[in-house]
Design a binder for these strands. Structure first.
Lengths: 174, 174
DNA sequence: GTCGGTGCAAATGCTTTGCATTGAT
DNA sequence: ATCAATGCAAAGCATTTGCACCGAC
């Protein structure tokens, strides 16, 4: 069973709001919850999905929040340590990250023709992962799974090689 | 069923040798099979697994084959286009590649304590992948799967945080 | 007034590119 | 001769770092 629906951003679960999770993490390290850090987290929450540093910077500018590149990257590291976001690694040019705190692990499917990216989650996958670990004697911690495929639209319309969207680097590139 | 055994490098299958595959590819593009390109491919075959550019350069030096960095990278791109190697993406610093021509797709498990990396392959995983694609209406082309886990040794010996081997960047880094 | 935080600009480090030279057909 | 390949050094780029200044407790 797979679900790829955008899935209501947890409107019901009484989950600790991300900002307080972050604040708690920072306090535990003797660090401060500054406006810049809050702004970055907000922008990430607004995107709610995969993002890259540059995009985040634009998002921040759009909201006329001035955060330097240096601070952005520093904050991204903190958020990783806090377990709020993880690195996604789609191509070797720049890093992609995604919000994961309080979410099921999400995997990705990338269209090799159009570059369209969707997220999905599959219990079967987790089951397989755990079984593999068990058979080899390892203890699972996390995983990263990306499928390269051709989306239905691309298949159907014989879509032209993407224009604005550059197809992600996959089983072969360049 | 999982197999992680080094698996005999195809001692029996009468598979077209990689160099001729590469040569054929080059010819089809009006390109030349030069000594440098052959040397690079040899070094990759010798490693037979995951490698990074820098390592390959060392391997080449060891065999006293002089290939410039530029040529190395250019050749790596050609080999990707030829479908002989693919990019692996373990961390965001540098690219990793792996030989895949004529092999079952291989996935990876990385130890978060020691950095040990093993390869495995699982039919179940492919089955799950195909099922997911089918359910969402996409046509599978390839995939990339990495498990972050703790290896048995690390679990047992309370191994010290790796010295030479730096643990790969996973569900959190920095 | 002590620390940590921030922005800026400079530094990194992997990868790519421009260019003059070299080599194969 | 022609066309591609090579090596070198320079350029690109995402990311990191050094440093002087700022602000909260």
């Amino acid at each position: 069973m797979v679900s790829s629906d955008p899935q209501p951003p947890s409107p019901k679960q009484p989950m600790a709001p991300l900002c307080s999770v972050f604040r708690r993490y920072l306090k535990s390290r003797g660090l401060k919850y500054t406006n810049e850090r809050a702004d970055v987290l907000d922008a990430i929450i607004a995107r709610d999905g995969v993002f890259e540093a540059e995009e985040l910077l634009l998002e921040l500018r759009r909201r006329s929040h001035r955060v330097s590149k240096a601070t952005l990257y520093r904050t991204i590291h903190l958020l990783q340590d806090a377990g709020i976001i993880v690195q996604a690694l789609f191509n070797s040019k720049q890093s992609h990250f995604q919000l994961i705190y309080g979410k099921q692990p999400r995997d990705h499917m990338v269209c090799m023709k159009t570059g369209r990216l969707i997220e999905f989650q599959s219990e079967d996958l987790i089951a397989v992962r755990n079984r593999i670990c068990k058979e080899l004697g390892w203890s699972p911690v996390g995983h990263r799974f990306q499928i390269y495929a051709v989306s239905p639209e691309a298949e159907a319309h014989k879509v032209h090689p993407a224009k604005s969207q550059s197809p992600r680097t996959p089983p072969r590139s360049r």
